Each structure stands twice: as C-alpha cells, then as structure tokens.
Amino acid sequence: MIKHKEHFHGSDLEKIEQYYGIKKEDIISFSANVNPLGISPNLRKTLSEHLNAITTYPDREYTSLRHCIAEYIHSDAEHIIVGNGSTELISLFIQIEHPKKAMVLGPTYSEYEREIFLGGGTTHYYPLKEADDFALNIEDFTACLNESIDLLVICNPNNPTSSAITRTQMRQILDVCKQYDIFVMVDETYVEFTENMEEITSIPLTHYYNNIIILRGTSKFFAAPGLRLGYAVTGNHDLIKSINTRQNPWTINSLAVIAGELMFQDQDYIKKTRELISSERAKIYQALQENPNYKPYPPSANFILVKILKEDLTSQDLFDRTILKGLMIRDCSTFPFLDQKYIRFCFMMPEDNRKLLDCLMQ
C-alpha cells in the first residue's frame, strides 16, 4: 500500500484555522472541487416546506428518487442503487467483489486503495504519464491487463489530473477486461462538469456490459457534500441484488430523498453551472499557459492540475502564499507519482479566480 503523506483536505478548514490562524469563514476553498454556485436555488427555496417528511420513514426502495435519477441520467431506474454518498457504495461494492488484486489508474483519489486494503486486497497502480499530459494511452494500458487482476478502478474525469477517457476508449477497456474477467468500477464524480459529457460518461455502456459499475454523487456538482447522497449505475442484476441485500435499510433520510429529487430537476441551475465552469476553465487554462512559471494540463473537470516550472518554487510555497490571502489550493505532493512541483485548484466565481491567479502570478 502506497504511503500517503499528511495533507490538508478541502474539508479541513478547522485544521487550517488552527494551523495558520485564519478564520475558516474567511477561507475560499479552491481545494474541495465543489460547485461555486452553492446549492440549487430550487432546493434552498423549497426544502423547508417538506420538514414534515422526517416524521415518516422513507420508501425502502427509494422508487421515486431512483426514477428521478434515471430521468436525469437517461438510464433505467432498475439499474440504479442509491446510497449514503458514493463512499458507502464504493465500500459495499468492494466488500461484495472482494478483489484480491486491483489495478488503479494513478495518481488518483486514495479512498479506492484504502477500501481495497481494508477488504484484504492489494492495489497496483498504472501511472498516467506526465509526458502524455496525463492522458491515458489505451494501447499501452490494455497491454498491462491480465487474468491476475480482478478489479479495475478508473476515476473519470480523474482527480487530480482532470484528464478524461472517452466512452469509445472505455468500450475498448471493457472489451479487454471482459476477456480476463475483470470488473470495472468507474467513478464519475466530476463528469457533469465536462464540456463534452455525452462523449465521456459510461452510463450508456451499462446496457451492453455486465462488468461495469458507475458511481456518482451530489457532493461536487450539486454542492451538497453534507447531504450524503450518492448513486451507482450497473446493468449487472446479480450485483444490484447483492448490494441491496447487504445495504442497511433506510440508508438515505427522508429530507435527502426530497432534496435529491429537487436538485436533479433544477435544469436552470444545471445549465448555469456548466456555463460558468466552461467559461472559467477556458480563461484560467489560457492565463496559465501564457505564464512561463507554470505548465497547466488540459482540464476536463472543474479543476486543473498545474506543474510549477520555476526552480526555487514548491507546492508548499504556493500553498503558504495563497492561504495567507485566504485562498486554499491543493498541494499535490501527497498524491502518488506527483511531487512538490504540482498543485491543483478548482474553478470558483470569476472574481475569486482572478484573486487566485493574481496571487499565483506574483
């Protein structure tokens, strides 16, 4: 198991407050990768009218919520499992599949490795190459797959590289995995932020492949990490049955169910989010490309990975410089295969993005 260094997570504002003496209310977190618009206005306006929902148990099958999600993602309600955040679903899936040897595309989110380790399995990384701008070389990657691997984990778009795999490429991966009896878990936490989501999401593939499960949540795109509402999509009915059997009843509370239904139907909010992120992503990428001190990698998600080219400048230096101005970025030296020359930050509101760029360009 790769040893991950201590770091400040995007939610560690209390630790930041204590360490740097800055009030958490005064910190703009560019590290949490959360939608800067905040929660859906429809949700904010309407949820209080449904407080009486907590006086009854939610529907044990979450039928209405699953149908609402199905309409949102253009899939079948029977293919959807809801959970207490995507983290619960990752844990349940790993417990059921019980992989002995998993392959993970890295650098990436450490929770996958942790869950595999807790389940008694080992994790092997396929490193995305900096020379390729961290884009996956499909031919080289699929040549590394073999019958000793029983689980493949892909974050798409990937965190922290912001690189993405197209659905056509995913189909090539699934075909090879099918040959070796490898199950594929795809985390699509950030796919809704992408410019060309219809070319990236693997959800349509669940109609044709039974060796794939896709995970999504409401923490990032819908700015509701405290809601703890996630969902999985798979066409494997045996897996759905196993998860439903193992999962605790009423894993999602009544208000979270209503909140989910309100958010998934707020088309105006969804449209505004995509327009904002698209505009800011293009502006920030271009600004960084023009600065000789940095190399930005092409971003697909709502965040960008940047390499520091200036010799006497490290990711810790930049973290300290920005946090003292109340701007929190991610020092990426904690990720496998990255070092003290990489930072990551998400796209916030235009005026906040300008403050961060001004700070970085000093």
Rank of each mutant, 00 (worst) to 15 (best):
I81R: 07
E6C: 04
Y62I: 04
E49K: 13
N196A: 14
E49Q: 13
Y294Q: 13
T168A: 13
T273P: 01
Y112E: 06
K271I: 06
A143F: 14
I116E: 01
T314N: 00
K220M: 00
Y208D: 13
L227C: 05
S11F: 14
I138M: 05
I258G: 03
I182N: 08
R281Y: 00
R114C: 00
P292Y: 02
Q289I: 05
I284F: 02
M263D: 00
N156E: 12
K310I: 00
I277S: 02
F134K: 10
N196R: 15
A32K: 13
P299S: 08
L89T: 06
L288G: 04
K129P: 06
D238M: 11
T251R: 12
T168G: 05
F303N: 11
F93L: 15
I16H: 04
Q362C: 13
T55W: 10
S219R: 14
T206Y: 13
T251V: 12
M328R: 05
K241Y: 13
M348V: 01
L360Q: 04
Y190K: 08
Y209N: 12
I212S: 10
D358A: 10
A282D: 00
A282K: 11
E111C: 06
E78Q: 15
Q265W: 00
K3W: 09
G21C: 01
R228N: 07
I80G: 01
T189A: 12
H4F: 14
G260K: 09
Y285P: 01
Y19E: 14
M361P: 01
G21F: 02
V153I: 15
E78R: 15
N159D: 15
T87N: 14
N84S: 09
V186D: 08
T201L: 09
F8E: 02
C177N: 07
P336N: 14
H7F: 12
L327S: 02
V184R: 06
A143I: 11
I243N: 09
F141E: 11
E130M: 14
D339H: 11
Y109L: 15
Q18V: 02
I90M: 09
E192S: 11
F222Y: 13
D181S: 06
L227W: 09
N137D: 15
E113Y: 02
T108K: 07
E139L: 14
F134L: 06
F221C: 02
V82L: 01
N210C: 10
F335A: 03
Y19H: 13
N253C: 09
Q169E: 08
A131F: 05
I214C: 12
I149Y: 11
L324D: 08
A224K: 12
I154A: 08
M328Q: 03
S278D: 04
I277D: 02
D238T: 09
I16T: 02
T123K: 07
P107E: 04
H4S: 10
N146I: 09
Y57N: 05
L360V: 05
I214A: 12
E199D: 14
I39V: 10
S279T: 06
R228Y: 02
Y126P: 05
E188S: 11
I240P: 11
A256V: 06
L318C: 10
G230L: 06
I240W: 11
T56Y: 10
I2D: 05
T46H: 11
